[in-house]
Nucleic acid binder design. Structure first.
Lengths: 198, 198
DNA sequence: GGTATAAATGGAGGCCGTCTCCGTTTAAAT
DNA sequence: ATTTAAACGGAGACGGCCTCCATTTATACC
């Protein structure tokens, strides 16, 4: 007994496994960005130089792969929210973060799936990613509410739902202007009526 | 030569063809509503009592079938817009129409695809349906702008883009409340700042 | 170094979609 | 009744997602 006292009782993952997982993530991110989420998994495996079986060993379902790719993005987004909260006035931080959000959607076409699952309900795919995003948004909204800039009764989730709309615009040609207009409309829509004016 | 002078030179479609087309449309509408857009075409064909080949004869692609199903809905929506324009004040007509829109999305799960293609860009699928919706929205927005209720610089398409967001909420359990809140936020966001107050 | 062992690999094949092709059936014109 | 072309329908091609398992390979222990 008592092997558990040994610091390295558990065998870590093999280095080829770790390397293949990393290659798959990078390839998947690039391929999703280029061809949209419709990209085939077999192609991703081929581009990564591994077999399809290996891909499924690391990511048991298509959604698991997508979520893993997103985890990076959501991480960055959460950090950006924290940063903005310290450098901008509440309502401007909110606006800026929403714009960063749509920028992320712009460059990589990802994220729409995550958003859908956040604002949808039950499915636990993307659960982690969803939590990070929700937390970030709630923090920004709470700050703005506490400062009296926006409605008291605003559900942070509603802002995410609205962003999901902005996200679905991402196909169009000059859609970035539209996305910014929409963010502004949303911000204007949630401000307190008697506030410091637009 | 000169058969073309005859009024009925062109042979109309056979009655069994017309009947099967109608049955396919009804079955597709019911099946899409029940199982979402993921419903299989072979199942729809079977439920309609025709072969898969017949389905594809009438609707060459999956998208063609979906669009045909939607054409009905968009027709109703366009008529509702005209009606509301005569019975409500401009901005309230806009709000009411947007709510009707989300109700349509609620009862039948359709429409998300159409919206996506409207606010997206190029794809000419759903082209007709898109035009009807765009026209209806433009009419309502123009009326509200002319009345001085909402911003002059509002692109009607932006409102549709926003609605696309509301549409993507349709999965959740008590999503209707969210959808209504979002519509109200959008309306508040596009009102003129010094307007008659909310 | 050599060997045992379990983790990791990869691709053949199952399943289930969309869509095509073509021999057969059938409504309608004469 | 006969002719004709439109309409039918289902077998099967093709391409996705995902499973299974024989083979390969990194690591632990002599």
């Amino acid at each position: 007994m008592a092997q558990e006292a040994k610091p390295k009782a558990v065998r870590g993952p093999r280095i080829d496994a770790r390397r293949n997982r990393q290659r798959l993530l990078e390839t998947a991110k690039a391929t999703f960005a280029e061809k949209g989420e419709a990209a085939g998994l077999e192609e991703i495996a081929r581009l990564a130089g591994v077999g399809i079986g290996t891909l499924y060993r690391h990511f048991p379902t298509r959604d698991a792969l997508v979520e893993a790719v997103y985890r990076n993005e959501t991480q960055q987004l959460a950090e950006a929210a924290a940063e903005l909260a310290t450098t901008h006035a509440p309502v401007e931080a909110l606006r800026a973060w929403m714009r960063i959000f749509v920028d992320h959607i712009a460059t990589k076409q990802l994220m729409a799936g995550v958003l859908g699952s956040i604002v949808g309900d039950c499915s636990d795919l993307y659960a982690d990613a969803g939590t990070q995003i929700k937390t970030a948004m709630a923090m920004l909204v709470d700050r703005a509410v506490a400062n009296g800039d926006i409605r008291l009764d605003l559900d942070p989730l509603d802002m995410l739902r609205a962003l999901a709309g902005v996200a679905s615009v991402s196909a169009g040609p000059n859609w970035e202007a539209s996305a910014k207009r929409l963010v502004d409309i949303l911000i204007a829509g949630v401000r307190t009526p008697g506030g410091e004016g637009q």
